[in-house]
Design a binder for these strands. Structure first.
Lengths: 200, 200
DNA sequence: AGTGTTGGTCAACGACTGTTGACAGAGTAG
DNA sequence: CTACTCTGTCAACAGTCGTTGACCAACACT
């Protein structure tokens, strides 16, 4: 049966089998991440990715099946969110804002996912899954009402994604001019209120 | 000299010349807006737009020159922002939040611009121009420090665009489930603080 | 009437896309 | 050495894209 997304490993039970093509595989993934981040899904062509990785386009197909498989393999996001019940309740907003800034600032995977999610259904679902699996549990640690956790997490996501959009994708000058402390200082009270304030 | 974006009006000084093809022209623009809003720039093909408008793809080229010209003609955004110096200072956040919600809710041009701006340079510049020409002057009416007007307007844009992204483009369930009063109640204090609060 | 402009259809072009299969060297096990 | 798998290159496929120009019908003007 065809299984294009998985690697054709000879030993199916091998947890880590170093292959001679690992260098090529990672080169493809790196080029793919960069292209997806700067061009979005449609304009990031397999040919351009292959050229960046200095290999033939057919290698991409062999190792990752098709373009969707390549995207799935290239974009794996771990937000590395800290446990919010370990920080003082009045500082969760600041902690989240600082963490998100640091994650976005040197992680082109997040930009790639944002750009792709806007025009590609699979990308949008991936973003939704990340929010549900990674952001929601952390929000649940500090939200007062369990019924509102999803709403409050979505509001936080909206604020963070909105800043990422204007800063990294649209590159509005006032948004790109902000330094770390400014971004954190402006966003912290917003996230704090979305997470812990009583429902308006 | 080629001037593909302008209409080939016989009388160059005529302010309003009703042409026999006006119905076709508006049909093209409506179909283009809808396609750009749902598919983004790359996947909204001229052929699909022409099929929606029930005409031949070559008509699009004749009337709007090329795809970029079509986009420029189809997406003309007027935020219709109210004068903020006319509302009580403590309510500018709520007024803005309510206005943006009403604008986004039944205006697919805004969704089209957001989707296109993420993958198309011209779209991004268009968004930036709208913020600069329409949002900035209104923000200047209520911002305490003239030097910070651009920053505060950008923060408001980030929050509004972030909610639009999660609600209309990515369609996160918690974001789409919010009703008007909830959106306004959650966003109003944020916009109020971004516009009028002292610099953090 | 005839003549020129405008609205619209049709077929095709070159370029580019994702994708496929045939084929050639490098590495390894027997 | 032989046999075989793995890695990589090359050429081509079918389809779609934006775009163009030839051609015809409907109208407007004189």
């Amino acid at each position: 049966m065809p299984d294009p997304a998985s690697t054709p490993a000879p030993a199916p039970a091998a947890p880590a089998s170093p292959r001679r093509s690992d260098a090529t595989r990672t080169a493809i993934l790196e080029a793919a991440r960069e292209r997806f981040a700067t061009d979005g899904y449609e304009r990031a062509t397999i040919r351009s990715i292959a050229k960046d990785a200095r290999i033939d386009p057919s290698m991409v197909m062999r190792y990752y099946g098709n373009k969707e498989g390549l995207f799935a393999a290239a974009v794996a996001v771990d937000l590395k969110l800290p446990a919010l019940d370990a920080v003082p309740r009045a500082e969760v907003g600041r902690a989240l804002a600082a963490h998100f800034f640091d994650m976005w600032e040197d992680n082109e995977v997040l930009t790639a996912l944002l750009r792709v999610g806007v025009t590609n259904q699979a990308g949008a679902e991936r973003m939704q899954a990340i929010c549900r699996n990674q952001l929601l549990p952390v929000a649940a640690q500090v939200c007062p009402d369990p019924e509102q956790v999803a709403t409050r997490a979505a509001l936080c996501a909206a604020q963070v994604l909105g800043l990422a959009l204007t800063r990294y994708v649209l590159q509005f000058p006032p948004a790109t001019a902000l330094v770390r402390e400014e971004v954190v200082a402006w966003l912290a009270p917003t996230l704090q209120r979305y997470l812990t304030a009583p429902s308006p």
